[in-house]
Amino acid sequence: MSAPDAETLGFTRHDHAHCVAEALAAAEARCTETGLRFTAVRRRALEILLEEHKAMGAYEVLERLQQEGLGAQPPAAYRALDFLVANGFAHRIERLNAFIACAHPGADHVPAFLICRNCNRVAESLSLPNAVVLEATSGTSGFAIERILVEAVGLCAACQQKADT
């Protein structure tokens, strides 16, 4: 990935075409090696999520699929999104009740999301020291963590600049 900061993606300039191609290739490779079916609807749903680093609701994805003649009913979009999340190709952003493509497909990671409260752009970060600490302390307490969700809300640099002018 040719981003200035490979740790956080979404608010930084990068080669977006390469970013999209890399994520699709990773998804295809993983599906091939694990025997998962990467159907046309699943692939297109991932492409739609990859087009912007902005979280999208299921109905936004459904609308795009319908415009292209793929998946006319809501279950088609939800099934595709569920598949993408279950297999690490996308994440669900709880705060926005929306989905975003994984910026680090294939990486074993606990993502942290930086969400702009103004434009709803989302950056996924691999820098997650608090989750590592939480995971380590859970082992000593006997608590088995099943899922960690970190969503930080604030203003991206572009929205901060707009607010200053």
Results as ranks from 00 to 15, higher is better:
Gly35Val: 11
Tyr78Arg: 10
Asp82Gln: 14
Gln73Trp: 13
Pro74Thr: 02
Ala98Leu: 01
Asp82Phe: 11
Phe38Trp: 15
Arg64Lys: 14
Leu96Val: 05
Phe83Cys: 02
Arg92Val: 04
Pro74Trp: 02
Asn87Val: 03
Lys54Tyr: 12
Ala90Met: 00
Ala72Glu: 12
Arg79Asp: 13
Ala45Ser: 15
Val41Thr: 14
Asn97Gly: 14
Leu96Ile: 05
Glu60Phe: 08
Arg79Tyr: 10
Phe38Cys: 11
Glu52Asn: 14
Gln73Ala: 13
Ile48Met: 12
Arg43Pro: 08
Arg43Ala: 14
Glu51Pro: 09
Ala90Asp: 01
Arg43Trp: 10
Glu68Arg: 09
Arg43Val: 13
Gln67Tyr: 11
Glu47Lys: 10
Cys31Asn: 04
Gly69Lys: 08
Gly71Glu: 02
Thr32Asp: 11
Ala72Trp: 12
Val61Gln: 01
Ala77Val: 01
Arg92Lys: 14
Phe89Trp: 01
Ala55Asn: 06
Glu47Gln: 15
Glu60Pro: 02
Leu70Glu: 07
Pro75Ser: 03
Pro75Met: 00
Arg64Tyr: 10
Leu81Ile: 09
Leu84Asn: 00
Ala55Ile: 00
Arg43Thr: 13
Ile48Asn: 01
Asn87His: 10
Phe89Met: 06
Gly88Ser: 06
Glu52Val: 07
Asn97Ala: 08
Gln67Cys: 15
Gln66Ser: 12
Gly57Cys: 08
Ala72Leu: 13
Ala72Ile: 12
Val41Gly: 05
Ile48Pro: 00
Gln66His: 07
Ala77Leu: 01
Phe83Ser: 01
Ile48Tyr: 00
Ala90Arg: 00
Gln67Val: 09
Ala80Gly: 10
Gly35Cys: 13
Ala58Asn: 12
Leu65Gly: 04
Ala98Pro: 04
Phe83Leu: 06
Arg42Trp: 08
Glu51Lys: 11
Gln67Leu: 13
Leu62Met: 09
Phe89Gln: 04
Asn97Val: 07
Val41Trp: 06
Gln67Pro: 12
Glu94Trp: 04
Lys54Phe: 08
Gly88Trp: 03
Ala90Thr: 03
Phe83His: 00
Arg64Val: 09
Leu49Glu: 02
Phe89Lys: 05
Ala40Gly: 12
Phe83Ala: 00
Ala58Gly: 09
Val61Trp: 00
Leu96Arg: 07
Ala45Trp: 01
Pro74Lys: 01
Gly35Asp: 09
Gly69Pro: 03
Arg95Lys: 13
Met56Cys: 08
Thr32Pro: 05
Asn87Trp: 08
Leu81Arg: 01
Leu36Ser: 12
Arg44Gly: 11
Glu51Asp: 14
Leu36Thr: 05
Ala86Trp: 11
